[in-house]
Design a protein around this nucleic acid. Sequence first.
RNA 1: GCGCCCGUAGCUCAGUGGAUAGAGCGCUGCCCUCCGGAGGCAGAGGUCAGAGGUUCGAAUCCUCUCGGGCGCGCCA
Length: 576
Amino acid sequence: MNLFEQMTDFVRAQVAAINPAWPLDRITVETPKDPTHGEMATNAAMVLAKEAGMPPRQLAEQIAEKLRAHPQVAEVTLAGPGFINIKFKPEFWRTLVPDILRAGATFGTSDIGQGEKVNVEFVSANPTGPMHAGHVRGAVIGDAVVRLLRAAGYDVTAEYYFNDAGAQVDVLARTAYLRYREALGETVEIPEGFYPGEYLKDVGAALAARDGKKWLDKNETEWLVPIRTFAVDEMMKMIREDLALIGIRHDVFTNERELVEGGLLETAFKILDDKGLIYVGMLPPPKGKEMDDWEPAELTLFRSSQFGDNSDRPLKKRDGSWTYAMPDIAYHLDKIQRGFTTLINVWGTDHMAYQDRIKPAVTVFSDGKARLDVIFNNMVKVFKNGEPVKLSKRSGNIITLREMVEQVGAGAVRFMMLTRDPKSPLDFDFAKVVEQSKDNPVFYVQYAHARICSVMRHAAEAVADLKTDDAALAQADLAHLDAPAEIAMIRKLSEWPRIVAAAAQVHEPHRIAFYLQDLAAELHALWTAGKDDAQLRFILPDQPEKTRARLALLRASALVIAAGLGIIGVEPAQQM
RNA sequence: GCGCCCGUAGCUCAGUGGAUAGAGCGCUGCCCUCCGGAGGCAGAGGUCAGAGGUUCGAAUCCUCUCGGGCGCGCCA
């Protein structure tokens, strides 16, 4: 239990002691934005004023009196409309430092997820080419959500869904076949509409190596399926390797073909039909859009409009075959059948409206017990030398994930992708992410960690017989931590567990990145204070005990930075 | 036309219903010549797009308006 939870419990207990009938759930304890308001503040008096039948300030005084009984509370004051501000004795904060040192990497983790089964589906690019700039953001966000939710005690499955049953993979197979002939010595030309990328040459060569001339004189009906299977496998292998470059590994790969062949589409359709949600009818043509070829027709429709969609949706085409939406609907049935109660999908903003078709299905299949949260991630604008890079598949001008990682490193790519709310467009500037300056958040946070490592290295030399392992530092006499800036640092560290919990609950890993920047700022400020005033330096050769206390605080800070970077999936730097 | 998302400092953006709305960049003025330089401190800069509503309290929740983005097919 973190310090805020402890205080929340304490405040609620004191309120209950005044009147057991009052509701406690709306009482919160938080950090006031303005530090002069105290170190923690509670809204208890304001939320209960009505029940108590007295003005908030008057109730606040009663509660405040109770809070003053806490042995570690130094001061309780009232302010504003009825806030109760609490200031603690320094010991209250200091106890956190050895707690962090002992908890190590687990500090900040919790069990608020209570083992709930969560499925995070991300990347899910079709197996037709390498990972590129357009995939990176969603990939990193998805992976960070996985790490975040695991830290908060959820049972998370990282999943990749790919479509290996559509027209795209047939084109892939045909392209691979041409490259295969090329590998066997022919001169080939890749027609318009095929995949022009060089990477398929390797696939052709591998196929030639495996099967020799076996397919040369066969016609397409014979080679299409085996070569498609081969090519898809190769593409997925490549994609996995690409993702591994930035530390992403999915637990489960699900493909459309198996769902279709397993009859799941029929099953899903039957469930909807049995619930009376299927009918045959006619849809009006979409308005505001040119529809030259619109022909009214009777179609098999899903009453998705009953669940928030703005129109019912066709599940079968006029010829009786399934529409595009159907495999996805069936896939989400599959997830629910596997026992997930929270489904998280990471999609580009161009699929924004598509959630309205999937959410109704999830609601129906789970009887409202499962929820689908789609995280939409906006565009990444890539800059090189300060100039925006125009990306287009057709001109073959793509920036691959591999290229990004090789140029700036996996950690920088990952951190950068989380420095904005997913819905916000993001600039990725090759020059900026490796810049060693304050306005590069990756550097700024890493530098803070590296500075601490540097101090630890120097400490061993500067002070004889100084034990600097975490266990020894946890024994340090922390009464030496008496500077306001040091206590402020500890307060910042104390927020970490609730940052993780809150970020996990709303599926927003970028909050971790923002917290890390705040934390790094505190650290840099502490560091610079030592330059202005020699007594504030971390290492004081003639005061080993004080030095130990400060090193304990630094190590605790480094552990939290490392934990935060861990959720983002970045290795903390030992030196720059 | 309909749906979803966005609108916060000059720029790029944070901000789980709380107090005087924050950070970086840019601007102004300082400090730091080394525990490790790439940092730190301070200042100027805001009708939180607008109008109603809910609430003790709204940038945050609801409704409407304006502006921008993405979508809206028997394509995938």
